[in-house]
Design a protein around this nucleic acid. Structure first.
Length: 479
RNA sequence: GGCGCGGUCGCCAAGUGGUAAGGCAAAGGUCUGCAAAACCUUUAUCGGCGGUUCGAUCCCGCCCCGCGCCUCCA
């Protein structure tokens, strides 16, 4: 097996991946702040994290992944207050939406989904540890981390704090701090705001502390992998390192993986730019979950991805090609036996696929291995060089592919129905389709092509495509 | 200004010191009752300028351009 390589932001190098505990990967992935629907840009990262965990699993690792749900922050507090509901009630809706969206994109559930508001105690204890070690100070009831006490500050984002001067840029924080880079571990409550009464005083957690507290609670002091979008590198991840390592004296994360942004018209997709699209919007416009997943997964994670309707359409065509291939492999009848040539071709595809992913999750390269195989096998089938015994190994490669990419299963309709974005039941059941297909076959047999075509059109109108095969059979698929 | 990512066929996107994967799109063809699917063929010298080298798209230097972070952000 090929050695797995990951590009580690911390070292700036692509390095062999070896987890701390053999055969086990402890990974923390930054989840969403649930103040609104997540957009496709957010899901670019979540899909990357899913590819990451699926690949590690396929390589035999036991993966323990923790994902946070940030369900308390300034925006949530404001919006909940504006809506006149509790933070809990306000975020619940978006948490459900987020989890539904994840299912729509076939994102595997992490082992632990940790809500910030359910880990206040853990955060308080972490702040206490930091205070005991002298890394904090209090100002107006808020507790800050003093970065001057942590010399390694900046090692992830390569930011040099020594030359930093307060006032060089406007200090946007409303609180008094000794140094502009110091960050809040615990924020004093403002009048009317929701707060927790704790051993370190009333208030609510700062943004960064939740990740450190929850990551270490479930994964130990030193994690193998921590991932998120590049925009989180500074200050979020940098601050996580500072507060975690200051508390434990041990390395917090061994491999930092950051995914690049999704762009729209060469600009980052973000709420503030106003160029966002939610999954629901895309689906409502007729795009399929599998198209979205394929597109997001097909561009290697460290590359910016320009998102366009055309690229989505292209992704849909690619998925169709793969599904057509699998369908042909399953339905067509081939001569008995197996060919040694096909055997070795299959093994090569398998190796190439894995080599691509092993190289820092190069999904584009892995995909090429699959499409190469598809073409070669199709050619062999067209030339009558494919045997029945060759089918199973080829299908096995496709299954290996789908264990990572998860786009082959034709369940787009079901997923949309689950989101309430499609009719509750499919227009035609499998049995109804089969009955019409049989009827058409009978018509074809007596060479009544008019009747035959009528049935095909009738099915086409209801979203079912028929394909006549060489051996006189028919296979169908839902559009 | 600092830090980071990137500039390869119409679009997306791999990759290697010895003349460039794959996908989508387009055109032509084969097959087919028709259609679809599939297959075949056609379409690039890798942002610019220097340097190293027998030879660079890939190594080094400089420059140009795009994007991001440095403030909330996947």
């Amino acid at each position: 097996m090929t050695e797995i390589l990951f590009h580690n932001t911390l070292t700036g190098r692509t390095e062999p991946f070896v987890p701390l505990v053999q055969g086990e990967v402890h990974a923390y992935t930054c989840g969403p702040t649930v103040y609104d629907f997540a957009h496709v840009g957010n899901f670019r990262t979540f899909v990357f994290q899913d590819i990451l965990r699926r690949y590690l699993k396929s390589r035999g690792f036991r993966v323990i992944q923790v994902m946070n749900l940030t369900d308390v922050d300034d925006r949530i507090i404001q919006k909940a207050a504006a809506a006149g509901v509790s933070i809990r009630d306000y975020t619940e809706k978006y948490i459900q939406a987020y989890l539904d969206d994840r299912r729509a994109l076939s994102l595997e559930p992490p082992e632990h989904i940790a809500r910030a508001t359910e880990h206040i105690d853990d955060m308080v204890r972490l702040v206490q540890r930091l205070t005991e070690k002298g890394f904090t100070y209090t100002s107006d009831g808020s507790i800050y981390f003093r970065i001057s006490k942590f010399p390694a500050y900046g090692k992830l984002s390569k930011i040099d704090v020594t030359g930093m001067q307060a006032g060089a840029r406007v200090d946007v924080d409303r609180y008094d701090k000794d140094n502009v880079r110091d960050f809040a571990l615990w924020k004093a409550p403002k009048p009317g705001e929701h707060f927790w009464e704790t051993a370190i005083g009333p208030g609510r957690p700062g943004w960064h502390i939740e990740c450190s507290a929850m990551a270490m609670k479930y994964l130990g002091d030193t994690l193998d992998i921590h991932s998120g979008g590049v925009d989180l590198m500074f200050p979020h991840h940098e601050n996580e390192i500072a507060q975690s390592e200051a508390a434990t004296g041990k390395p917090f994360v061994r491999y930092w993986l950051h995914s690049e942004h999704l762009l729209v018209d060469h600009e980052k997709m973000s709420k503030s730019v106003g160029n966002i699209a939610t999954l629901r919007e895309l689906f409502a416009h007729g795009h399929k979950p599998s198209s979205v997943r394929f597109l997001l997964a097909s561009v290697p994670y460290r590359r910016q991805l320009n998102f366009t309707p055309e690229s989505l359409q292209g992704a849909a065509s690619s998925v169709d090609r793969l599904r057509n291939f699998v369908s042909r492999l399953r339905s067509e009848k081939f001569p008995a036996g197996a060919s040694p040539a096909m055997e070795s071709r299959t093994v090569k595809a398998q190796e190439d696929f894995d080599r691509g992913l092993a190289d820092d999750l190069n999904t584009a390269q892995a995909l090429a291995a699959i499409f190469d195989l598809v073409r070669d096998v199709n050619t062999a089938m067209d030339h009558g060089e494919f045997r029945q015994g060759d089918a199973a190994p080829v299908l096995a490669v496709l299954e290996m592919f789908d264990a990572i990419f998860a786009v082959l299963h034709d369940d787009d309709g079901e997923k949309l129905r689950a989101l309430g974005l499609a009719p509750v039941s499919p227009p035609l059941s499998d049995d109804e389709i089969e009955a019409l297909v049989a009827e058409r076959q009978a018509a074809r047999k007596r060479r009544d092509f008019a009747a035959s075509d009528r049935i095909r059109e009738q099915l086409a109108e209801r979203g079912v495509i028929l394909e006549d095969t060489r051996d006189g059979g028919v296979r169908w698929k839902r559009k």
